[in-house]
Computed example of a mutant assay.
Amino acid sequence: MSVIRCSVVIPTYNAAHLIGEQLGALAAQVGAPDFEVVVADNGSTDDLAAAVGLWTERLDVRIVDASRGRGVSVARNVGIGHATSDRILICDADDRVAPGWIAAMMCGLDDHPLVSGPIETTLLSGRSATWVPIDQRTTGLFETWGGRTYGLGGNVGLRCEVWERVGGYDETYPAGAEEIDFAWRAHDLGYRFAYVEEALVHYRIRTDLKGVLRQQYNSGRGTTTLYSKFRPAEVSPKSVRRRIHHELLLLRRFPWLGSADDRRSWLTLMAFEAGKLVEARNLGCPAP
């Protein structure tokens, strides 16, 4: 019997129409050790079982019930809790890992407790890749205050001890910034992310404007939640006057003479700002 050396955790919600592409990419991995795939179902109402069942002859894959609460953090925590190895790789159901992703991530985990790699947005997203403020091909870890870095939640590798010591992903977050929260708490315990250039993930941005706006709105909400917990000393809250001035400047930047994609990009920025303000009001704290 082969020994499972790593567990790939895929948090999933109503992605039966997309997950086959990700499972196919995992089945085609090059140079990977023996691994299992844990699909953490966050309460899907589509036919996820049938979609995953198509791959059981090519992958050691199973579905676990992660419906005890709504959110990607719940699904990640449940999936990791069901893993049978101490090396955890996390990817998303609607993305596609590159052929050498597992091998590269495992190599990184030999020397580092936390790893992440680049993402590329154009292959699966097309023109909507230009609507969001994410580089179409990243070249390093994402940076935040105080030199703290993090990896995008859908391209993370970690040793199980890190997840256990950190206390898992915070399940109170809306769908955004929870991976930064995890990275910051890991940082406080002495864990640092390492960048693995070969661990590429093709990242899917929603191709409908409504979906992109919802995604950016939730990201704004998550950003406010993050800063309500970890507001760095060098970040002073904006006064009401400064906040109004900031929002008016954004409104004045509407690209009247720009292209349709320019206007969509502006709308995604405004959705992010709206999410920050709404969550700040909900939490009773200043917006970042």
Rank of each mutant, 00 (worst) to 15 (best):
H246M: 14
R192S: 14
E21K: 13
E197Y: 00
N42S: 11
K276T: 13
R243H: 12
A98Q: 08
V38P: 06
Q216D: 07
E36W: 08
A15T: 05
S67T: 10
T121D: 07
I134Y: 09
A27Y: 05
D92W: 04
V8D: 04
T224E: 09
E143M: 10
D181R: 08
V74G: 00
C6Y: 06
E164C: 03
R70G: 04
Y203W: 15
S2P: 15
W256Y: 06
V201I: 13
M270P: 00
G146N: 11
L249R: 13
D170A: 12
K229M: 14
T138G: 00
G168D: 10
D92L: 04
V9G: 08
P174N: 01
A66D: 02
A50Q: 09
V156C: 14
R214F: 11
C107H: 15
E197L: 02
F35Q: 06
R204Q: 08
A271C: 14
N218R: 15
T268R: 03
D188P: 00
M105T: 04
D92K: 03
A51K: 01
A27S: 15
R206T: 04
R185C: 01
E198N: 01
P118R: 14
R204P: 02
R76F: 05
Y203V: 00
N218T: 10
R127P: 05
D262C: 12
V78D: 06
R204F: 07
